[in-house]
Design a binder for these strands. Structure first.
Lengths: 220, 220
DNA sequence: TAGTGATTGTGTTCACATTCACAAGCTACA
DNA sequence: TGTAGCTTGTGAATGTGAACACAATCACTA
């Protein structure tokens, strides 16, 4: 019962994703290995959770030493089927859309923005970041020809349902939306909404009820 | 063991927050009551989860009818100590900061942006949304005089650690950051990072491994 | 080569959360 | 008033993940 046999718990999957970026940081700092204790501290989880998580994708560490950072990143990405760049399109080049397009890091993290759309004539033709803004009229056709896997919907709330429908029709089944109210989408389309209000409310709640988080592992 | 006695499970707390916005939508649609089945459908959870969650904050529904939407929202907000507006400051008036400041909905959701800061002289003095951008030099002093409870850090990555430190020094203990790499903060400060890469990676993973989500409650 | 200190890997235990199933209670209507 | 149809509220069962504790293993040093 080791190495990728059996099934990986859902929570572990979620955490595996969240390890990736800290590991990148550790790698950039020049560390060759990282211990479960270190990584746990960065991610604010229990070290034994880290070890168990990694045990689900195979025994990757060396006792007494830790985990080889580079190998670890590789293994996680393999386990999460996150090998090739994910092809992304941004719909809506307002403040948020622009921020995304100008964000330089996506390239390093396995994402590639391949197209941007807007319906406003003065924006169409502009070059923002690495792409040139296209007319939203061509949305469906272009999503298909660019083999887009994920669409970021950053349009005004009123337009969102229409855009979402068209994206669904084009066969894209991952949508990241900045419109918090639920978009009615077919079952085969996964939608994640970025809801800052929600995060902020939770944050303040937890700050108020400051429950002491204990982390330790054995000798704490 | 009813009505606010005992303790509320963590997962329930999280969900209570996530019910708020859908309930607002239902309210705006003109519905007076909502059933656990309806709300569960919107939130993609099991109806019995909804009922149990609400049972932790008291018996709020009427059998055969459902829950009074307005009362429900009130009760949830009370339970989450989310009665008064949360006072927010935005640091960094770039694309993201501007998007936040111009976002009209916060006011309706219990948030009030009371200040914005930037270090660039040409931005200081501009009015964006409801506030006038102030010089970041006065940050600590102004955070205190405005009794800011939560700071949104939307500055370039390189400046983030410094801003975070100053925010911490000013006594604010909730920070929402758009800088994904962990900010080193004292223990009494809660930081939530908005990490789009993380969300996108999860989204694509779940779209690929399309596991059929079942929801039903008894008769499905 | 033996000893020391550190760290992983994991079986077991425990705590927590979800689901189920059904009684209790409401509305509507004849 | 009585009946039918919903919907809530909740005890009990089930499922799942987290924490723990410790054996196994490695590097390093004398």
């Amino acid at each position: 019962m080791s190495v990728g046999s059996g099934h990986i718990p859902n929570e572990t999957i979620d955490r595996l994703f969240s390890y990736l970026r800290p590991l990148m940081c550790v790698l950039n700092r020049g560390s060759v290995t990282v211990s479960s204790r270190e990584l746990a501290e960065i991610c604010t989880v229990n070290p034994s959770v880290v070890r168990k998580d990694f045990s689900y994708i195979g025994s990757l560490g060396t006792r007494g030493v830790g985990y080889n950072v580079r190998e670890l990143i590789e293994s996680i990405r393999r386990a999460l089927k996150f090998d090739n760049d994910i092809r992304i399109a941004v719909v809506g080049v307002g403040n948020i859309g622009r921020a995304l397009l100008e964000h330089p890091r996506f390239g390093f993290e396995g994402f590639k923005i391949v197209a941007a759309f807007d319906s406003s004539p003065e924006k169409v033709g502009q070059t923002v970041g690495q792409v040139t803004v296209e007319d939203a009229a061509d949305l469906e056709k272009r999503l298909q020809s660019e083999a887009v896997q994920l669409v970021i919907v950053a349009v005004p709330e009123i337009c969102a349902p229409d855009v979402a429908r068209r994206v669904g029709d084009a066969g894209v089944n991952s949508v990241l939306s900045f419109t918090p109210c639920g978009l009615a989408m077919p079952d085969n389309v996964n939608v994640t909404s970025v809801d800052l209000s929600l995060e902020m409310a939770r944050l303040v709640y937890h700050s108020c009820s400051q429950e002491g988080l204990r982390i330790g592992d054995g000798a704490a």
